[in-house]
Structures are given as structure tokens and as C-alpha cells.
Write a protein that binds this DNA or RNA. Structure first.
Lengths: 231, 231
DNA sequence: ACCTGAACACCGTTCAAGT
DNA sequence: ACCTGAACACCGTTCAAGT
């Protein structure tokens, strides 16, 4: 029902020549471009969170009128999509030691994925949208390649990829949304204790007090990989 | 930084008596209440999606002024939190066959969880917020209880719970956001083919064409449970 | 205890126009 | 090809007031 963008971007062709118009660069701001818009959006999101991103504020930061943005970008949705994908860009090519076994490689890949998103917590809440940007696809491709080098049966490949993908996504979201302050954590636990006839088990296991997210992520991933390992 | 609600709700006490003021029920709409607000919000969200929920529209639907809502509810965030948690309510107590083994029970629990959310796709995009409502906690409790009855080592309990929780969350989100139409799927695949020097592996495995989400969910969960099984 | 309307300070986007 | 301001149709929420 809701139009979600057709995946066919770039209804205007990007300038192919990198040449600057002489005289332009003297006038303060460089000209608007998709790249600059995305960079500005990420800065704004880092500083103010999801609700802080406003077309008007973004334009201000870039020194342009609001409506100028719309030449380069379809709408606000588009900006969100671009910002999300940009977080997943590899600034440098992933440095996997060639000698690592496939499990080590997968763990490395997925930990980097999670870390990239947690560096920009707003990206996590943008995740539940169709997010098939180029960087997301490259990471899927890389994961895919690693798995098929590992001897995962062809019939299980897609399941393996989706399970791992799913695990990172879920873990990242859980991590970002349950990352309470110590005080909040204590308060939540007290609430459980107060209602302990309903929540006896998780009260006893102190589930909400555990904050070793990195460890939990790694261990859970280990379990999943145990299950996925070719026999 | 952003105030996310402290978990302590109900700064005004809910009416404990169920008695109706005589004469009230003749005037058309029943009086506003937290319950009615949540129910209205869910209806609106089902009909219009996340962006369709507006305090004004919600008030309209309930036959009240906008500002009346704010007596019962802190703000729009609060409405979202309540709506999300209400999706996770058990309308009837979960019917697990007592004879089922623990794996069967866990699968049953998690499939119901996923199905409950997918019945209201907007709920998926509300997930990346701190969502510790009572219904979410009961489901965690139930999962917890099932696992500890299964002989999962106490030291692994929290990891097991979080991994499974994480898996459902991720799977649900993935499912909801990659649920493309056949046309979109074909278009995405074609895009991969066009760029096949970058995405050779996922192009070949036709990852994006696979739409057996229920099967994938179940199989991946199987792998995870294999890893988690007490040895 | 519960409900209200007016007002404030914003939004995203269309449109017609400028260079 | 790129940028702009004015205008439209909305928002969420504060406040002072009503019953």
C-alpha cells in the first residue's frame, strides 16, 4: 500500500565529470550533491537522533534552501534509506586474515556489521524498512562467499545466510533498545521482583541485569554456528 | 538523552470500579479510557500504518477532542508503546500440548510470537524501542520457564533466551521488510544480475527470490536449537 | 476527575518561478 | 541543470479554562 520506493534510483543522472565550475568554490558552500546530503544527514542523525532529522534542518546545515534538497533526493524516506546504507559502507576493505577458518571469518564479519550499526544507534531503528542498498548487498555477498567456501550445503545456503543475517539484526536491535542505564536496569529488576508471581523465572535469572552484550552476542552466535556447521 | 519513558506508568490511578455512570452510556461514545485508546490506536495502525497514526485522527475515531487523550496517556510515544505491547497479548492462554518435548514447545512459542507481530506489520517497525511491556515480559517468562525445564545449563540460560529472542526479532523484521511483491523480487534479482560482478554469489543462489519465509524461519530456528541443545 | 479549544512552533511537499 | 520562496495542509503539545 505505502509506496516504498521502487529501487530504481537516480531519475536524474549524476554529474560524471568531477570538474568544479571555477568561481563556485569561492562562494562558501560547495554545491549540493547526493553525497553531501547523505553526509549531512548522518551528522544530524548522530547529533540529534531520528526525530532530529528534518528536511529544513538538513538544508540549514548544508547552507541551502529546503527545496533544493528535492532536486537530488526523492523525499525524506530516500534520505533515511541513503543514511542507513551509508553506515554499512566499508571505509577500508575488511581485513580478514586469510588463514582464519570460516567460523572466524563469519564472526569477524558479523561483529563488524553489528559494531558499524551501534556506532550510529539511530541506524538500528531505521532497520525495519526494506533496506537493500548497495552496501547492505555487498555485506550479504561477502557473507555468502565465506559460507560457500566453508562447505555449507547448497540446499542450506539461503537458510544459513538468512539465519545469520537475522541473528545480527535482532541482536543489534535488542542491544540498542535494552541498553539501559544502571539505574533503569535496577528499576526494571525491582519491578519484576514486585510482580514476582508473574515473572518468577526471569526475575530469578536476573535476565535484565545482565549487560555483557558483547559476550552474549558472541556466545549466541557460537551456538548458531554450531548448528549450522556442515557435518 | 531522549527521554524514553521511565517504565513507571499510571501517574493517575485507573478507575477500579467497573460501574458506569447512569446516563453516560446514552450519550453515544463510551468514556475515554486507556483501553479504548489502545484499541483505537491498533485499529488505526492496522488500517493506515505507522504514519497513519495521528493524535488528531485517533481522537476523531474515539469521538473526543485531541487533548482529551492526554489525560489518559503521556504522549504519542506512550501510545506507540501500548499498541506494540498489546499485539503481544495472549487472547487465549497458549495451548501447548503437555506431552510435547521442550523443542516443540519453544518452536510453538516463537512461531506464535512471530505470527502475532506479522498480523500487525506496523508492530515490527516499532520494535526497535525499549519495549518491556507486561506482555513482552510474560512471553519472555514463558520462554524462560520452558528452557529451564529443558535442562539448559544455568550458566547458558541468559544466552539461550537472548539468542532465541534475538532470532525471532530479527526474523520478523527481515520477513516484514523483505516481503516484496513478485515484481519487486524479480526486479531486485535483475538488478543483481546487471551488477553481477559485484554480487556474483547471492545472484547465483537466487537469495532474493526465495520467499519461503516460514520454512526458512523454522529451519534456521532448528539450527539454533541444535546448537543450544544440552549435551 | 475528566474534557476542551485556541494557540504555538513546528513539519514535508507542491507549485510556479527564477538563473 | 540546478536552486528558490511562498503557500498548503498538516503535525504534537502547552496552557488556561471549563464542568
Amino acid at each position: 500500500m505505502a509506496a516504498k520506493g521502487s529501487g530504481a534510483r537516480g531519475k536524474r543522472s549524476q554529474r560524471a565529470s568531477g570538474s568544479l565550475q571555477p568561481g563556485k568554490e569561492l562562494s562558501g558552500e560547495p554545491p549540493l550533491s547526493r553525497q553531501r546530503i547523505v553526509a549531512g544527514a548522518v551528522e544530524l542523525l548522530d547529533a540529534q537522533g531520528v526525530d532530529g532529522l528534518t528536511m529544513r534542518r538538513l538544508a540549514d546545515r548544508l547552507g541551502s534552501g529546503v527545496m533544493s534538497l528535492y532536486w537530488h533526493v526523492d523525499n525524506k524516506e530516500d534520505v533515511f534509506d541513503l543514511a542507513l546504507d551509508s553506515v554499512l559502507e566499508y571505509r577500508e576493505p575488511p581485513q580478514m586474515v586469510a588463514s582464519q577458518d570460516w567460523r572466524g571469518k563469519v564472526v569477524y564479519l558479523l561483529e563488524d556489521w553489528r559494531a558499524s550499526m551501534l556506532r550510529h544507534p539511530w541506524s538500528v531503528s531505521l532497520l525495519p524498512r526494506r533496506a537493500l542498498g548497495p552496501n547492505m548487498l555487498s555485506r550479504l555477498e561477502l557473507l555468502s562467499k565465506t559460507l560457500s567456501g566453508a562447505g555449507v550445503a547448497a540446499a542450506d545456503m539461503n537458510v544459513a545466510i538468512w539465519s545469520l543475517w537475522t541473528y545480527v539484526m535482532g541482536a543489534t536491535i535488542t542491544r540498542a533498545s535494552f541498553d539501559l542505564s544502571d539505574d533503569d536496569r535496577a528499576a526494571a529488576q525491582q519491578r519484576l521482583t514486585r510482580l514476582s508471581e508473574h515473572y518468577a523465572t526471569i526475575e530469578r535469572s536476573r535476565l535484565l541485569l545482565d549487560d555483557d552484550w558483547d559476550g552474549i552476542f558472541r556466545k549466541g552466535l557460537g551456538f548458531l554456528l554450531d548448528g549450522l556447521s556442515p557435518r
